[in-house]
Computed example of a mutant assay.
Amino acid sequence: MGDHGRHHSVRRSYDTVAEEYAARLQDELDGKPLDRALLTSLLEVTEPGAAIADLGCGPGHVAAWLTGKGARTVGIDLSPGMVEAGRRRFPQVEFREGDLRELPAKDGEFGSVVAFYTIIHLDPDDLHRAFEEMRRVLRPSGALLLSFHIGEEVRHLDEWWGYDVDVDFRFLQPGHIAGLLQAAGFTVEMSLERAPYAHEADTRRAYLLARRT
Rank of each mutant, 00 (worst) to 15 (best):
A195V: 05
S79Q: 01
E189A: 12
G86V: 10
P59V: 09
R6T: 12
D3I: 13
P59T: 13
D166M: 01
E109Y: 13
R12Y: 04
G31I: 13
Y207Q: 07
P140G: 01
E200Q: 14
A71K: 03
H149F: 09
L138P: 03
L55D: 02
R194T: 14
Q92C: 02
P91F: 06
K32S: 06
A51Q: 14
L208M: 08
L38S: 08
R101K: 15
K106W: 15
G175V: 04
V154T: 15
D158P: 05
E102N: 04
D27N: 11
L181Y: 14
E189D: 12
R204V: 14
G70K: 09
S147Q: 13
I120S: 05
D123S: 11
S9Y: 11
P59Q: 13
R72V: 11
G142R: 00
M82G: 02
Y207R: 09
D107L: 09
R36A: 08
S41L: 13
E132L: 15
E152N: 15
P48A: 14
L55K: 06
H61N: 09
A130F: 01
A198Q: 13
D54Q: 10
S9P: 04
D158L: 09
T203V: 05
L25K: 12
L100Y: 14
T40D: 02
D202Y: 03
R205K: 12
V10P: 01
V165S: 06
L146M: 08
G111C: 03
P91S: 14
G31M: 02
P140T: 13
Q26C: 07
A85F: 13
R24V: 10
A64R: 10
P59F: 12
G60F: 08
D164Q: 12
P33E: 07
